[in-house]
Simulated assay, not measured.
Amino acid sequence: MDEELHERVREVVTTIPPGKVATYGDVAAAAGASTPRLVGRILSEDGADLPWHRVLRANGTPAPHLVHRQLELLRAEGVLADGQRIDLRRYRWQPS
């Protein structure tokens, strides 16, 4: 994997402010990654020190294996879910 791309993805994730979320696709577009799946791979392998919980699937839901922890972390930042879905219209971060 391209090390520069890897670092750009990490940098984009660090800029998502508390109380906001982005989709894997949002992060991929901002970092210049070819696919949102690459963002997921980077976060799973090298994202423990990042605010990974602010990155959601395109439909506003967490990955199934992270749902409880991710929603708990988001709730602590004031991001409230409707069931297991975050309202992207309300909480979505737009990079400047």
Rank of each mutant, 00 (worst) to 15 (best):
Arg54His: 11
Tyr24Pro: 03
Gly40Cys: 12
Gly83Asp: 09
Gly83His: 07
Arg90Val: 13
Pro64Val: 09
Gln70Arg: 04
Asp26Pro: 06
Val39Met: 04
Asp49Thr: 10
Val79Glu: 04
Leu80Phe: 13
His6Leu: 12
Asp46His: 15
Val39Ala: 02
Ala81Gly: 01
Gln84Ile: 11
Gly25Val: 03
Trp52Lys: 12
Ala22Met: 10
Val27Glu: 08
His53Pro: 10
Arg37Cys: 08
Ala22Ile: 06
His6Ala: 03
Val39Arg: 02
Ile86Leu: 03
Gly47Arg: 10
Arg10Phe: 04
Gln70Gly: 02
Ala28Pro: 06
Val13Phe: 05
Thr14Gln: 14
His6Ser: 05
Ala31Trp: 04
Leu74Val: 00
Gln94Ile: 03
Pro62Tyr: 04
His65Thr: 11
Glu11Lys: 08
Asp87His: 07
Leu73Gly: 00
Glu77Tyr: 09
Asp87Trp: 11
Val9Ile: 15
Pro17Ile: 00
Ser96His: 00
Ala30Lys: 01
Val67Gly: 02
Gln70Thr: 11
Ser44Glu: 14
Thr14Ile: 07
Val9Leu: 08
Glu72Asn: 12
Val39Leu: 04
Asp49His: 14
Ala33Arg: 07
Ala30Trp: 03
Ser34Leu: 13
Ala63Ser: 06
Arg57Trp: 08
Ala81Asp: 04
Ala29Ser: 15
Leu50Cys: 10
Pro62Phe: 03
Arg57Ala: 07
Tyr91Gly: 02
Arg41Phe: 14
Val79Asp: 06
Val55Ser: 02
Leu88Pro: 01
Val9His: 04
Leu73Trp: 09
Ile42Met: 02
Ile42Thr: 05
Leu80Glu: 15
Pro51Met: 09
Val12Cys: 01
Gly60Ile: 10
Arg89Cys: 12
Val27Gln: 06
Arg75Phe: 13
Glu72Asp: 14
Ser34Met: 13
Val27Ser: 05
Trp52Arg: 13
Val13Glu: 01
Ala28Trp: 06
Ala30Gln: 09
Thr14Ser: 14
Tyr91Asn: 06
Ala81Gln: 04
Arg8Phe: 02
Ala63Gly: 01
Gly60Thr: 08
Pro95Trp: 00
Met1Gly: 13
Ala29Met: 14
Leu73Thr: 01
Glu45Ile: 07
Pro18Phe: 03
Ala31Asn: 04
Leu56Tyr: 12
Val12Tyr: 02
Leu56Ser: 08
Ala58Cys: 07
Ala30Val: 01
